[in-house]
């Protein structure tokens, strides 16, 4: 479903990702872990077309994301191509990024109406059932600023889900939340995972959650994938020295 091939990314002189190769199968759930500054957020941001890779190619659902083929050669993608491939990807941000000037219902219907071309009735019907699913059916007429962080993040998840992306990206979606609000958001993520329809790429610091929900864990350090494997193996018996250090440091700080 997703394929990174020899992807590198630099900001000026600073190389944040180096020669990343990663394949994700349809409806697979992959958790990406690593210390802050390791490049894991940049990885998902490239997949959402928010950052452009310096080199390498990314494929989504069999189509090149940042390039297109012309006469057998790779050329940079134009806006039209980007939008076509981008429609297969959705993202939930660390800081929610809801639209503050729109009520909750409109936050969720705006893109289905104007991007997918749904009628208002269709869009609202689906938005309402999605908001009910994340437990916010009673907040349709509220503004984002009237909601708690956990509620805002659940709206953001609903907003991404109604676009029916094939791949969902979650970028540290609980990091900005007060500890007591983390649970409600993770619960929603678990429900999406349990449905098994969506491919999920989850950048997270919640190790217990990653262990429970993910099919595979990817550990990134210093801009490279150092180790990957099923949760039992990576958490239970990490092979790499750096992975062991990271995990033990993590247990201590929590």
């Amino acid at each position: 479903m997703v394929r990174f091939h020899r992807v590198s990314k630099s900001f000026g002189d600073l190389e944040v990702l180096r020669d990343i190769n990663l394949e994700i199968a349809p409806s697979e759930i992959v958790a990406i872990i690593g210390s802050s500054g390791s490049g894991k957020t940049t990885l998902v941001r490239m997949l959402m077309t928010l950052e452009k890779p310096t080199s390498g190619t990314i494929e989504v659902d069999g189509e090149l994301l940042w390039h297109k083929k012309e006469n057998g050669r790779l050329v940079p993608a134009d806006e039209k191509h980007l939008r076509k491939v981008r429609s297969k990807v959705g993202m939930v941000f660390q800081q929610f990024n809801l639209f503050p000037h729109m009520k909750i219902l409109r936050n969720v219907t705006e893109a289905p109406i104007h991007v997918l071309g749904l009628s208002r009735e269709e869009a609202e019907q689906e938005a309402i059932s999605m908001l009910e699913k994340v437990g916010l059916g009673d907040k349709l007429d509220a503004y984002p600023s009237q909601l708690s962080g956990g509620q805002q993040q659940r709206v953001a998840i609903a907003r991404a889900l109604v676009m029916h992306p094939k791949v969902m990206l979650f970028d540290e979606v609980t990091s900005a939340l007060d500890p007591e609000l983390v649970g409600e958001v993770l619960q929603v993520l678990k429900e999406i995972a349990a449905e098994g329809k969506t491919t999920m790429l989850i950048v997270t610091h919640e190790m217990d959650f990653a262990r429970e929900v993910a099919d595979r864990i990817v550990f990134i350090d210093g801009g490279r994938i150092l180790e990957e494997g099923p949760p039992e193996q990576l958490f239970g018996n990490p092979r790499n020295q750096r992975t062991r250090e990271f995990l033990s440091r993590f247990r201590r700080t929590i």
Binding site: M48, T49, L50, E79, R83, R86, S87, V89, G90, M91, F93, Q95, N97, L98, F99, E110, A111, H114, V115, R159, A160, M163
Partner: peptide, 15 residues
């Protein structure tokens, strides 16, 4: 980040 949220919802630059 508001622009990024718009991109993530696949809106056009004009939208």
């Amino acid at each position: 980040t508001q622009i990024e949220a718009g991109i993530a919802l696949n809106m056009s630059p004009w939208q």
